[in-house]
């Protein structure tokens, strides 16, 4: 099977497009929370593009995954860092790829252990469909369909540049 779509879009341009979608709806109480690792990079990028005064929160969902019983603990857990009080804030959860929706579910559960935000929205670069939970993105710049065994991941090179990678898991 050939891997659609070639060539892969420019992730940096997509970040700018995502920022353009978010900008008109920014409020003074908006804060970003990026999901490790791809979402964290995008949240940092959006933070610069939107000139937000605050650093983005970074969240590692390893302790909230629903497949812990089957897969065990992720070998590389990073500390979740939310440098602001989430109570009453309007949060935008940021991820690279929206797929089954399970990561979003885990991130929501973790966020609510920090307090009660006024609202949570979801911003993603790519939505590849095949949802297993009732989750929809608020902001998304790329809709695509991929075969199940194909893995779409965001990478970051040593200069900090973001780019897409597609791999087949036979």
């Amino acid at each position: 099977m050939t891997l659609p779509p070639f060539p892969l879009p420019d992730a940096e341009a997509q970040c700018r497009a995502l920022a353009d979608l978010i900008r008109p709806r920014l409020t003074p109480d908006t804060a970003l929370v990026g999901i490790y690792s791809g979402g964290a990079w995008i949240a940092e990028r959006l933070s610069q593009l939107l000139q937000l005064p605050e650093e983005a929160g970074l969240i590692d969902i390893s302790f909230y995954r629903d497949d812990f019983a089957e897969k065990g603990l992720h070998p590389q857990v990073r500390p979740t860092q939310i440098p602001f009080d989430v109570n009453g804030r309007r949060l935008i959860l940021v991820d690279d790829v929206l797929y089954t929706g399970r990561t979003t579910r885990a991130a929501l559960n973790e966020l609510f252990d920090y307090g009660r935000p006024a609202a949570v929205e979801l911003a993603v670069l790519a939505d590849r469909g095949e949802r297993e939970l009732p989750v929809a993105p608020t902001y998304c710049v790329w809709n695509l369909e991929l075969p199940r065994q194909t893995c779409l991941t965001l990478g970051r090179d040593e200069t900090g540049l973001l780019s897409w990678r597609v791999e087949d898991h036979a």
Partner: peptide, 19 residues
């Protein structure tokens, strides 16, 4: 490394994770 991630949990409103 994993312990480092658990250290921050005590600063939160809910000092528990569901693992």
């Amino acid at each position: 490394d994993t312990a480092a991630s658990f250290l921050g949990i005590t600063d939160r409103e809910v000092k528990k994770v569901p693992l």
